[in-house]
C-alpha cells in the first residue's frame, strides 16, 4: 500500500501512567503488521530522564515518535511537552497527545505548546485498534519522520 520506504523498526515512546491504557496501546500496536520498538515510562520525571538518557535510560534509543498522556503523576504531560518542544535536540520529535480530556483548554494548550496533534482516548479496544491503524497509515506509511 505504501508508496514510501516502510520503516520496520520505529522506536515509539509511550508516556502513560494507567496500566490499562498501556496494555490497550501495546495490544493495539501488536495488531499492526509491523515490528515496533515500544518503550513505556509511567511518569513525567521518567520521561524526561529517558529523553536525557539519564540513569537506567543511558542506552535509551531516541524515539521516532512519542505518545504522551496529559494526566501524569508529578510532572504533568503538558510540562513534558513543553520540555520537549523547548529543547533544540528533542523538539523535532513528533508528539501525539493521547488523553482522556476533551476540555477545550487542554486541547488549545497542547497545540499552543506545539503538540503534533491531540487525540481523545478511545473507549473500546476495537476503537484503539482503529486508531492505531489510522496513526500507522499517516505517521508510519505516509509521513517522513525526522531521523
Amino acid at each position: 500500500m505504501s508508496m514510501f520506504l516502510t520503516r520496520d523498526r520505529l522506536n515509539i515512546l509511550i508516556i502513560e501512567d494507567n496500566e490499562g491504557d498501556i496494555r490497550l496501546i501495546e495490544e493495539a500496536f501488536q495488531e499492526l503488521d509491523r515490528t515496533l520498538s515500544l518503550n513505556v515510562v509511567v511518569n513525567g520525571e521518567d520521561a524526561i530522564s529517558y529523553l536525557k538518557k539519564e540513569g537506567q535510560w543511558s542506552a535509551a534509543l531516541r524515539p521516532d515518535i512519542i505518545l504522551l498522556d496529559l494526566n501524569l503523576p508529578g510532572i504533568g504531560g503538558g510540562e513534558v511537552l513543553s520540555y520537549i518542544k523547548k529543547d533544540k535536540n528533542l523538539r523535532a520529535i513528533p508528539v501525539i497527545i493521547l488523553s482522556n480530556s476533551s476540555r477545550n483548554e487542554d486541547i488549545a494548550a497542547s497545540y499552543q505548546a506545539c503538540a503534533s496533534c491531540y487525540i481523545v482516548k478511545p473507549l473500546t479496544f476495537q476503537d484503539y485498534i482503529n486508531m492505531m491503524k489510522v496513526i500507522e497509515q499517516f505517521w508510519f506509511n505516509t509521513v517522513i519522520l525526522p531521523n
Partner: peptide, 21 residues
C-alpha cells in the same frame, strides 16, 4: 498514490484527531 496519501490525511486529521477550535 495521491489517493492513498489524501485518504491517510483525511482519516487522521479529519476523523481521528481533535482539532483546536
Amino acid at each position: 498514490d495521491y489517493i492513498v496519501t489524501i485518504r491517510a490525511i483525511e482519516a487522521f486529521w479529519l476523523q481521528t484527531v481533535t482539532l483546536p477550535n
